[in-house]
Design a protein around this nucleic acid. Structure first.
Length: 263
DNA sequence: ATGGTTGGTAGCCAA
């Protein structure tokens, strides 16, 4: 089974790219972020025509997440618990039945957090990460295969940036940000790409500005975290870097994990 | 080199 995360940066502007990529990559489950669409305007018909079930958690203008799946959804949960005042659409969980039992997959869009001088930005990011840690800790107690996939807006280590010095004042690379991410990992998750790729220079995002793609000035911020039960099934990972060179690309590319689960 | 580009929206904001 192939499970992919992709920050698509506007699903309505990217529907052509998305359909082309779905035909080419043939994923079983896709976690999308930054759909930038309300649920009613999500282009579901084109995706359903390819055999996918579609569940969305959108909002007007920005943010928004979705899960596309060849398996039917047994259950869908929208929103990260822990703050009733938080109206950002950044979290959706799907539950599926496999021959081995339940499989849980989350599509998350962790707050960017810039600038770090603004509490409503950076403080919100750190608070959101604390809520995610609490949620994940409780979910791990189920002892089920769980894939926490998404745009984490976290550069875990210096080797995850082509030019780490460029990011020292950025919310994505603050020590406190990386600490919070590591706390999440240390609950018992396996980070799929880090655990299957030895070479440095694996990036998932290249800024539109200043020729970042042409210079390969990228960062690795899209991650797939596996519960112990999911990590036992880990076979391989892959990054669809070529998608960044397509016409009208997202600034992120799809990142995949292949699990030993019958699709 | 505090520049540069894109999507959604019609507020320039968010990234």
């Amino acid at each position: 089974m192939k499970i992919v995360t992709w920050n698509i940066n506007g699903v309505k502007a990217r529907i052509g790219n998305l359909v082309h990529w779905l035909r080419e990559a043939e994923p079983d489950i896709v976690c999308l972020q930054e759909i930038k669409s309300v649920d009613e305007q999500f282009p579901r018909a084109e995706i359903e025509a390819l055999g996918y079930a579609v569940e969305t958690h959108g909002q007007k203008g920005f943010n928004g997440v979705a899960i596309l799946s060849r398996l039917p959804f047994d259950e869908v949960n929208r929103g990260l618990p822990g703050d009733d005042a938080d109206e950002h659409a950044r979290f959706i969980e799907g539950v599926f039945s496999t021959p081995g039992g339940a499989l849980r997959v989350v599509s998350l869009y962790l707050p960017n957090g810039n600038p770090i001088t603004e509490e409503r930005k950076f403080g919100y990011k750190l608070a959101w990460m604390a809520r995610l840690e609490a949620w994940a800790k409780a979910r791990l107690e189920l002892e089920e295969p769980l894939v926490l996939a998404g745009d984490y807006n976290v550069i875990p280590e210096a080797i995850d940036a082509r030019n780490p010095e460029q990011w020292v004042n950025d919310a994505l690379f603050q020590p406190v940000t990386r600490q919070a991410y590591r706390r999440l990992l240390n609950l018992g998750f396996t980070e799929a790409v880090r655990n299957t790729t030895e070479e440095p220079g694996v990036y998932t995002f290249w800024d539109y500005q200043a020729g970042a793609w042409q210079k390969n000035n990228g960062i690795r911020i899209d991650h797939l975290l596996l519960s112990p039960e999911a990590a036992n099934l880990l076979r391989a990972t892959s990054v669809d870097k070529h998608v960044r060179a397509w016409e009208k690309p997202s600034d992120h590319v799809p990142v995949a994990v292949h699990l030993d689960v019958a699709a």
